[in-house]
Design a protein around this nucleic acid. Structure first.
Lengths: 189, 189
DNA sequence: CGGTCGTACTCAAGGAAGTGAGTAGTCAGA
DNA sequence: TCTGACTACTCACTTCCTTGAGTACGACCG
């Protein structure tokens, strides 16, 4: 029951279709959760069945019809309940980190490549988040916006995403540099 | 097949029992992965069946016997293969972030409490990692250790954990402060 | 005018992960 | 001496997430 609340939270900001949700959860604006389209359609169906969201059909010509969803009163209440209950600690879970852990026992060349690639992705995501933040706060300074803006939730989660991607990038670059140096040092012997 | 490699990587550094693994994966030294005891026992059984680890019984008096596991040649080869295959991108997945996303629509008091609590945990974990790093590098500087140390994998993953916990702590504190300020600002109106 | 891309969604199946309960002996402290 | 905590592990169940395939139609490009 975790995706469930992520979907509700996402629908607070805008009325969206399953497809649009899938886009932002697949990446794009998914600064706070990730899920595949199938999961989202399934979850939306369950949420609607439970009365936490309401869908309305939108007829489109020159492209398939779609269903837009909004959070109901019951949905808001459920979010309220969820937010009040104590959060379980979050854990890091990343293939790349596991690979680095065993770096002393395996060939590091492909690892360095993966770290470099990951650093690039992290940089791109960080830049995207930076632009999103600018768009949200408009002409105001961050301080000002956080003090008096109307909707700071998405801004704060975007800040989390930015910070996460920045350290991710730094760590990947540093780690790649260390492994590269050790590789050449070994070759010299 | 993700926990699988995390277990193999953990066993590279030391011969461990399921119970000991469970301790470090449950927290403690689990700077790079998290899992519950049941998962680990099941995974160890599968790994042994597949010949990737070998267990040996250690008879103890005054406490239950245990089985210690080591990585076999096949296990190392599997890790090698895993490390070479390209990594899928990692995603942030955190209840707390979801809650913050909906902060504008719900009562923030319990959220602030959770953020403060999380900040405390993150701080404690960061301190633990700092001490672990010191212990690993001994009298050497970080630079020196990373250049010439024998086993830098665990050190690098610990650095990742440290960086992660530090930004986590900062974000939680900042977010809690923002929400607190907005709460009092609202009360003043 | 044919191929590919984008919108919008569905179905089926499998593996990974989390939840809860239980066993059984040892040791330290109230 | 009883309680609770620690070591060491097992079994059963459920829910979540991923993988892979498939439908349908319009739009854009060469």
């Amino acid at each position: 029951m975790a995706l469930r609340h992520a979907v509700l939270a996402a629908l607070l900001d805008a009325e969206l279709s399953g497809y649009q949700l899938a886009k932002s959860f697949g990446m794009g604006v998914a600064n706070f959760w990730h899920a595949l389209p199938q999961q989202l359609y399934a979850e939306l169906a369950r949420l609607e069945k439970d009365g936490l969201v309401a869908g309305r059909e939108v007829v489109q010509d020159s492209r398939p019809n779609k269903r837009l969803f909004t959070v109901t009163g019951a949905g808001l209440a459920e979010l309220e309940r969820f937010t009040a209950e104590s959060a379980k600690p979050s854990f890091m879970r990343d293939d790349l980190v596991v690979k680095v852990h065993s770096a002393d026992h395996v060939d590091t060349a492909p690892l360095i490549a993966q770290l470099t690639e990951r650093a690039g992705f992290a940089r791109a995501k960080a830049e995207l988040f930076t632009r999103l933040l600018e768009a949200m706060r408009g002409s105001r300074t961050e301080e000002e916006f956080l003090r008096r803006g109307e909707r700071v939730g998405p801004y704060l989660t975007c800040l989390a995403g930015l910070a996460y991607e920045q350290v991710n990038q730094q760590w990947c670059e540093r780690t790649a540099a260390v492994l590269r140096e050790r590789q050449t040092a070994r070759a010299d012997r």
